[in-house]
Design a protein around this nucleic acid. Structure first.
Lengths: 226, 226
DNA sequence: ACGCATAACTTGACAGTGTCTAGTTTAGCG
DNA sequence: CGCTAAACTAGACACTGTCAAGTTATGCGT
């Protein structure tokens, strides 16, 4: 795929059809180009400094062009964020694949993936929970976020004794998710917390490991009513 | 100035000094009026829809007026958020005052205050962690946020055995804060989480109570290295 | 009692934003 | 080969935050 990034100068043959053209009226792969531009803008200016027109500029296209592919800003950001959820989901799977098979190890893997993803993709992660800039009516976004949630929930449920697995362990899921999410967001946008923990992604990772290990007994009897 | 009706309708006496005046050029208490307006705008349009000019409109003042008191938008929002931290700090104290004196009860009170505050003050709470819209160089904001943090940290530390209290229980603080913060933010801007928990503030409160109770053993030996 | 410096506010301008609408180019299909 | 419809451009609109320059009124020093 033409995924080589940085399509700055239009290195000639990059459109679907118009091979010889140096510059063509039709971009050819504007959708993808805009999504890549969005990432660049987000990295450079943060979520707050994100601008549709700046994306268009980077894709060397007029400011009205994005509308044709995404409708409006929320459309673009929703599509962008759908990819984010897909990646997080995939990262969780990858971490699990590299972990031991027991329920706790599988669960811990998803939690660590969550935190690592957040720390490694600051604006991407922040956007995933800025509901005011997203449209969860977007099917791909709704599907991806639901799938991600389910993977997390499943690894929690799998820690229950077999016959307890019919009921949803609400408290356990909430605990795990809150922990991972709180740790991630506080690391990303609270100075005091970041200083407390040590600042970098490595510290967050080992801290999460410690917390999960400590909290282990809480999960393994999660489900039976107190 | 071709303004014929110089006396625009102004809601009569509302200034601090100019009592008899029907309309005064000077507002008299614009600072406070703008902060109140900010709250109204935030409640109506959310953090994303917040606008400085809209605040000015509500305070029946020109769009340039706020600059004189707050410099720029971040100035106003920082001052607004300083108050938010002060209120959260006060709410924690109030909850603690109504709780038992033992260390765990005091700690749980701060956690519950955190969650209740968030759920009862959505945009206010959200703003407190939108570092891109705040200026933590603002002294009042920095002081208030630090004080709030310290209260939370102290109630965690107080759960340690006396002679362990010299070291900062980083893990315990991180665990508690992450839990409270994650639960709060997820309730506020994640549909799936809110549905899982039940949606309203009451559910969040009792869930937090349960989680704190469950996690109790984790805190009480927090500090001694694993 | 009264100037008058200056704080408090207004007004207008500017660059920039997202979205709409109407026009232009071109791809691809019959 | 012609033509429809998709892809993109260009300009306009209402709105934003900030700045600079003007206007009004307060209260302080004398």
């Amino acid at each position: 795929m033409a995924r080589s990034g940085a399509a700055v100068r239009k290195p000639s043959g990059q459109q679907k059809k118009a091979r010889g053209r140096v510059s063509s009226y039709h971009h050819g792969a504007l959708r993808e180009a805009l999504l890549e531009a969005a990432e660049a803008v987000l990295l450079e200016h943060g979520v707050e400094g994100f601008t549709l027109r700046e994306c268009a500029r980077r894709a060397r296209v007029s400011h009205g062009a994005p509308a044709h592919h995404f409708g409006d800003v929320r459309g673009l950001l929703s599509e962008f964020t759908a990819v984010s959820f897909e990646r997080l989901d995939a990262l969780m799977s990858a971490y699990r694949a590299r972990s031991a098979a027991d329920a706790y190890a599988q669960f811990a893997a998803t939690g660590l993936a969550y935190v690592d993803f957040a720390l490694a993709n600051r604006p991407r992660f922040q956007l995933m929970f800025r509901s005011d800039r997203l449209d969860f009516g977007n099917e791909r976004l709704a599907a991806a976020s639901t799938r991600t949630y389910r993977q997390l929930a499943d690894t929690v449920t799998a820690m229950l004794p077999p016959r307890a697995r019919t009921r949803v362990p609400v408290e356990g899921i909430a605990l795990a998710w809150s922990l991972a999410h709180g740790l991630s967001t506080l690391m990303l946008d609270n100075r005091l917390f970041a200083e407390l923990v040590g600042g970098n992604a490595g510290h967050a990772h080992t801290l999460m490991q410690d917390l999960l290990e400590r909290a282990r007994p809480l999960f393994e009897d999660s489900g039976q009513q107190r």
